[in-house]
């Protein structure tokens, strides 16, 4: 694997982890624009737990503890934040991320604005393994009765309530587990690059992650995977093609097209790339023979 491909693969894996973290609350209709906050917490916590001048724990232990720590913070803030609705929730999560970033920059023991080096290195295999595990976990999670409840809340929370769904608890779980995944993503980031700097986890990162999720589609567990792959790989391919064509301007302007694509997507396919109906059609296409056989048997 060449260095370039490996570097892109890492970015892709991180994007996928982040996207699923934001997908879980989004699947229940909650927009979380604070991904960067959870990522920052996870990256610093895991780094500090592992570093020699921190606690000096093994990397794996540090990552798990960091994840639990971020989960605890997520749980604590989910109680007040989930009281807010609509625009207020977008703003509250956004504010949370900014507060975390502001605090991280001012913690001298975390290196302050200069950032913090992280000792242990997570090679590409670990990054990929974590990303795969996160994807599998989310597919499992969304297929459970709890996942069904979250999707019901997304569609109509009052009806879900009447069928006995504890809407508040379900949302707290989705938000907290999502926070843990983002924290895990941050931990992996820190250990792979061996350096954590709060400024890299900025508003734009939160925005991009939310866009991956909304553009991929929140109706099925495929959405964030497709969104993250699509929007990290396509601009890279675009850049290459542009360079091949000898146009540096075109290569630099790939994000302009990315933006235009987003705007057009909202016009032609507002529910995201992967919708429930599309998933069914694909599944029907792939298992066409089996489906027909079963129908015949019945």
């Amino acid at each position: 694997m060449s260095g370039y491909v490996e570097a892109q693969l890492i970015i892709l894996c991180l994007s996928v982890i982040y996207a699923y973290a934001i997908f879980l609350p989004a699947a229940s209709g909650q927009l979380n624009l604070g991904a960067a906050g959870f990522i920052t917490l996870g990256a610093y916590a895991s780094g500090w737990l592992n570093n020699a001048d921190g606690l000096g724990l093994p990397m794996g232990v540090g990552m798990v503890l960091a994840m639990l720590f971020v989960g605890a913070i997520g749980f604590a803030i989910s109680l007040p934040i989930l009281r807010t609705r609509g625009v207020y929730m977008v703003l509250a999560t956004f504010a949370f991320a900014e507060v975390v970033s502001g605090i991280a920059i001012n913690m001298e023991f975390l290196g302050g604005a200069a950032g913090m080096p992280v000792d242990a290195h997570a090679p590409v295999e670990i990054v990929v393994a974590v990303a795969v595990a996160v994807v599998l976990f989310c597919f499992y999670f969304m297929s459970t009765r709890l996942g069904l409840a979250l999707r019901s809340i997304h569609d109509d929370e009052n009806v879900a309530l009447l069928f006995g769904v504890d809407v508040r608890t379900a949302r707290v779980v989705a938000f907290t587990v999502g926070g843990m995944l983002a924290g895990l993503g941050g931990a992996v980031y820190g250990h792979h690059y061996n350096y954590v700097e709060a400024q890299t986890f900025n508003v734009l990162l939160s925005i991009y992650i939310l866009l991956y999720v909304l553009l991929g589609g929140t109706q099925t567990a495929w959405g964030p995977l497709v969104g993250a792959v699509f929007f990290t790989v396509i601009p890279e391919i675009f850049r290459h093609v542009a360079i091949e064509m000898g146009s540096d301007w075109l290569a630099d302007s790939r994000f302009i097209f990315f933006g235009m694509f987003i705007v057009l997507m909202m016009v032609v396919r507002p529910e995201g790339v992967v919708t429930r109906t599309m998933q069914d059609r694909c599944a029907g296409f792939l298992s066409g023979r089996r489906g027909r056989a079963r129908r015949a048997a019945e």
Binding site: R151, H154, D155, N158, V159, T275, R276
Partner: peptide, 11 residues
Amino acid sequence: IRLMPHLSTVE
């Protein structure tokens, strides 16, 4: 009707 529009019949 207040079925969940994005869920299947069985769901």
